[in-house]
C-alpha cells in the first residue's frame, strides 16, 4: 500500500465528483434551468431598446454576475449535499488523505462545473442583450476565470460549513455573498469596461485586487477546511 499524495487525492475527488455529475446531470440541470429562467425574465424586463439606451456595459454585467452568483450557490451546495446523503464525507475523512487535498478536489470540480455553466450563459447573454461577444471573447474568458476562482474557493468552503451544520443554500448565500462582495464589485466593474461603458483606467487595479482575493480565499479555505469538517 502506498501513500496517496496531494495531487492524486485531489484528482480522485475531483474526478469522482465530475464523473457523478456527468452521469446524473443533477447539479447542472438545476443551475442551468434557474439561470435560463432568470436571464429570460431580465430579457423581458429590459427590451433591446432599453438595453441600447442604458448601454450594454451598464446592464449586462449586473445581470450576468447575479445569475452566476445564484447558480453557483445552487451548484456548490449540492456538491456537499452529495457527500451528506450516506455520510460519504465521513468516509472521505476516515481515509488517510490530506484534508486540504479533499477540499481542493471539491474546489476543482466546482470550478469546472461553474466555468462550464458560464460557457453557456455568456454567449446566451450576448444573444439576448445583443452585444459582440467575439470582439471581447478572450478577455471575457480571462475575466470570468479570474473572478470564478475566488468565488468558488469561498463557496466550496462555506458549502462545507452549511452542510456540516445541517443548513443548505440559505446559510451558504448568507455567508458567501457578503464575503465575496469585493469580487462581485470587481467583476461588474471590469465586465463593464470590457463591454465599453466604464472607464478603462481602473481595470488594472481591480484585476490586481481580484487576483489578491483569489489567492487569499484559496489559501484561507485550504487552511481552515480541516477545522470546518472535523467535530
Amino acid at each position: 500500500m502506498s501513500e496517496t499524495g496531494f495531487i492524486a487525492t485531489c484528482r480522485l475527488v475531483a474526478g469522482k465528483d465530475l464523473h457523478l455529475e456527468w452521469r446524473t446531470w443533477d447539479t447542472s440541470t438545476s443551475s442551468l434551468v434557474f439561470s435560463l429562467v432568470v436571464l429570460v425574465i431580465f430579457n423581458f424586463a429590459f427590451d433591446l431598446a432599453t438595453v441600447r439606451e442604458l448601454g450594454v456595459g451598464r446592464l449586462v454585467p449586473g445581470v450576468l454576475w447575479s445569475v452566476i452568483a445564484f447558480a453557483a450557490v445552487i451548484g456548490m451546495t449540492r456538491s456537499f449535499q452529495l457527500e451528506q446523503r450516506h455520510e460519504t464525507l465521513s468516509a472521505l475523512l476516515l481515509s488517510p488523505c490530506d484534508r486540504s487535498a479533499i477540499f481542493f478536489g471539491k474546489f476543482v470540480a466546482n470550478l469546472v462545473k461553474i466555468l462550464t455553466l458560464e460557457l453557456i450563459l455568456v454567449p446566451l447573454t450576448a444573444v439576448l442583450f445583443d452585444y459582440d461577444l467575439l470582439a471581447v471573447l478572450w478577455r471575457m474568458a480571462g475575466l470570468l476565470l479570474l473572478h470564478t476562482i475566488g468565488l468558488t474557493a469561498l463557496g466550496t468552503l462555506f458549502a462545507a460549513i452549511a452542510v456540516r451544520v445541517g443548513r443548505g443554500e440559505a446559510l451558504l448565500a448568507t455567508l458567501l455573498f457578503p464575503a465575496s462582495t469585493p469580487l462581485f464589485i470587481s467583476a461588474v466593474k471590469t465586465t463593464g469596461v470590457l463591454l465599453g461603458t466604464e472607464s478603462t483606467t481602473s481595470v488594472a487595479d481591480w484585476l490586481t485586487l481580484t487576483a489578491g482575493f483569489d489567492l487569499l480565499y484559496v489559501f484561507l479555505a485550504l487552511l481552515t477546511f480541516e477545522v470546518v469538517v472535523e467535530r
Partner: peptide
C-alpha cells in the same frame, strides 16, 4: 487511519 475500517448503519457509498 490506515489501520481503521468502519462499517456503519450508513453505507458511506455513492448511490450513482
Amino acid at each position: 487511519r490506515r489501520r481503521l475500517g468502519v462499517l456503519s448503519h450508513q453505507s458511506f457509498l455513492y448511490d450513482d
